[in-house]
Design a protein around this nucleic acid. Sequence first.
DNA 1: ATGCCTCCCCGAGGGAGA
Length: 259
Amino acid sequence: MKIATFNINGIKARAEALPRWLDESQPDVVLLQEIKSVDENFPREMFEERGYNVETHGQKSFNGVAILSKLPLEDVTRGLPGDDEDEQARWIEATVIGKSALRICGLYLPNGNPAPGPKYDYKLAWMERLYHRAGDLLASEEPALMAGDYNIIPQAEDAARPDAWREDALFRPESRAAFRKILNLGFTEAFRARVQGPGHYSFWDYQAGAWNKNDGIRIDHFLLTPQAADLMRDCQIDAAVRGHEKPSDHVPVWVDLDV
DNA sequence: ATGCCTCCCCGAGGGAGA
């Protein structure tokens, strides 16, 4: 089962690039972030005609996550537990039924800039809630994953110019520590389990020719429970997608699981 | 690099992104 995560930076703006990538890449499941659309306006036919089931958790203008799946989805839930006051659409999960069941969680973790400040406080509080949901997933002892735009640069090697990010909410010590705290519960970071070394990125800014200079950062991640990690056959970043016509500033990352 | 683009709102130009 090929499962991808892709921050598309607006579903309307990606009406051509996203279907083209789906046709080329043929993922079974896709976790989308930043759909920037309410549920009623999401172009679900575009995906249903390609054989995908569609589940959205949208919001006007900002944020918004969705799941596309060629396999049946069950027990869909929306919103990260832990704060009933939180209106931001950043979390969706479902069980996908393949040879066996797999719990999949799609997330769009807050950016957090400027740091320090209220937006950074929201990011860290959101990560604390994520920590608790992650612990519950592990306790189930079932194959499960949490994937999406984490807005976290885990290590210096995950940025072309780490010194430019030292004070940024994506790379500050508290952000990285919160990410490690979740990892250290017992998750496998899929990409780093398969590929070592610098130069692997999932985001390049639109500005200043960042793509042409390969001035990128790796902020889109798959975290696998041990039961899911046992099933991993591959994990790759589709970096070439950044060079296509009218691209998102992020590219897809995918895992292949024997499930 | 506290913003060089691009997205959204809509029908100007400001907020948000990372």
